[in-house]
């Protein structure tokens, strides 16, 4: 090793801790400013951009939720995201089960066919997708967006779920079969409950990007009463330009469900993010 020629360079404990704390501040201070400023009237924010609220006041949330239509956007986002995730997870667990459990003719083909979707830049297909949905009468229709979102969730979900189904012991399904259960009963009563942790991972990993997506609803939804939070946000930032307190409240409302999700499933999210690296 040529290592001896390298000048000795060690981080002191204070230096590294200092760096980590400073960066934690870089992450947390903007979030802190956002949350505190939702409780300060806009006049006060203009006078002094950073400061603690003198009174606890939730008017900005009331304005964002009511006047700025966030209640509507929030419900749309919830309905669309939950339906898409449910549909994709249901379809993917059926396919993942049969692909994970059996080596039938064509099973290899179907596995790689589904997995191929993981690498495809799907947004670039927006023009044909737009025309397809238009011919089906599904433009400006929440169902159209749900179908598109569910399709985007299929590759990842089939990939993960088939791997989990493959690991389950063979004896369980055989015993059920000898008791006279058909394939669907084995799937739904015996096998599906055993992959519940994988179902949770798959659902969370679909939920976050769909909840945050801006591209598809921007193009596929036209009327404001169908908009999701990210699209609603663009109009909101134009209309409430001068009402900073409400703007900050809008940011908080949009992000809150994800923070709750993250704090309740941190380990699942972190292990899922690194699934590609661990062998």
């Amino acid at each position: 090793m040529r290592a001896l020629k390298i000048p000795k360079f060690t981080f002191t404990g204070i230096g590294t801790n200092g760096l980590l704390i400073v960066y934690a501040a870089v992450v947390l201070i903007p979030m802190f400013i956002v949350v505190t400023n939702t409780m300060r009237p806009t006049r006060e924010i203009y006078r002094e951009p950073i400061g603690l609220p003198s009174t606890i006041n939730f008017d900005s949330y009331v304005t964002a939720w009511g006047e700025a239509n966030f209640s509507l956007y929030f419900m749309n986002s919830m309905v669309i995201t939950v339906s898409s995730v449910t549909l994709a997870t249901a379809a993917a667990s059926l396919a993942g089960y049969i692909l994970g459990r059996y080596d039938f003719r064509g099973s290899r083909f179907f596995s790689s066919f589904f997995v191929a979707g993981l690498t495809l830049p799907f947004r670039l297909a927006i023009v044909p997708l737009f025309l397809l949905l238009n011919s089906l009468g599904l433009i400006d229709n929440r169902i159209g967006l749900i179908l598109v979102y569910a399709a985007t969730g299929i590759p990842f979900s089939v990939f993960i779920l088939s791997a989990f189904f493959r690991q389950l012991p063979q004896e369980l399904s055989e015993a059920a079969r000898i008791d006279g259960a058909n394939e669907f009963v084995i799937f739904s009563r015996v096998m599906l409950p055993l992959v519940r942790p994988a179902l949770a991972t798959v659902a969370i990993f679909q939920f976050v990007p769909l909840w945050n997506d801006f591209f598809f609803p921007l193009i596929l939804l036209r009327s404001t009463d169908k908009w999701t939070l990210p699209v609603g946000m663009t109009r909101f930032f134009g209309e409430f330009q001068t009402d900073w307190s409400t703007l900050f409240a809008g940011l908080v409302i949009t992000t809150l469900p994800l923070v709750v999700l993250f704090l309740s499933a941190t380990e699942q999210i972190i292990s899922g993010l690194t699934a590609g690296v661990r062998k």
């Binding site: 059926l94 396919a95 089960y97 179907f110 979707g117 799907f122 297909a125 397809l132 985007t152």
Partner: peptide, 17 residues
């Protein structure tokens, strides 16, 4: 078992691509 996932994925993802 394959049909729902196959249809969703093929119609709304592969076909447009």
């Amino acid at each position: 078992f394959l049909l729902p996932a196959f249809l969703l994925y093929t119609i709304f993802m592969i076909y447009p691509l």
